[in-house]
Simulated assay, not measured.
Amino acid sequence: MQVDKEIDLSGLNCPLPILRTKKALADMASGQILKVVATDPATPKDFDAFARQTGNQLLQSAQEEGKFLFWMQRK
């Protein structure tokens, strides 16, 4: 997957991963893809809700080595 921007939010707890993701997406053009790395166990649920509420598309999520990975496409 072609990623336009990547942010590592490891160590940050709710609501900071969502707030930083929102800020990063705001600086991107429509259709661009943001990869997010997070460690907060609440982030999978938070990112699902964030995508539904904002219209940005959660393309994929995964978990690797204790980290949560998300690929979001800017609406």
Rank of each mutant, 00 (worst) to 15 (best):
F50H: 02
R52Q: 11
A38L: 11
G66T: 12
I7Y: 09
Q60H: 08
K67E: 15
A29Q: 13
E65K: 08
L25V: 12
N56A: 10
L19I: 02
L25K: 04
E64P: 00
P44M: 11
A38M: 06
A38Y: 03
T39I: 01
Q60V: 00
K45D: 04
A29N: 14
G11R: 05
N56M: 06
M72W: 07
D46C: 05
K35N: 02
R52L: 10
S30R: 14
T21K: 11
K75F: 12
A38T: 13
A38G: 14
G31R: 03
L12H: 14
A42R: 15
L9H: 03
L58N: 06
F47W: 09
R74H: 12
A26F: 01
L19M: 14
G66H: 03
T54K: 14
L69P: 06
L34M: 06
L58R: 11
L16N: 13
R20T: 04
T39S: 01
R74P: 07
S61Q: 13
W71F: 12
D40G: 04
D4P: 07
T54C: 10
E64L: 09
L59I: 15
Q63T: 15
R52Y: 00
V3N: 04
Q2F: 05
Q32I: 13
K67C: 12
R20L: 06
D40W: 01
K5I: 01
G11T: 01
K22S: 14
F50T: 07
Q2Y: 03
L9R: 08
F50D: 01
A51S: 15
A24E: 15
K22Q: 13
K22C: 01
G66C: 07
M72P: 03
A29V: 07
S10H: 10
I18M: 08
S30W: 12
V37I: 14
D48T: 09
K5V: 02
L59G: 10
A62Y: 03
P15V: 00
T43F: 00
A42E: 11
D40M: 03
V36F: 04
F47S: 05
T43A: 02
L58F: 10
A51P: 00
A49L: 09
D48A: 13
K45I: 02
D27E: 15
D4F: 01
S61K: 13
M72G: 04
I33C: 11
A51T: 07
L58H: 05
Q57V: 15
F70Q: 04
E6N: 03
A42W: 00
D27S: 14
V37H: 12
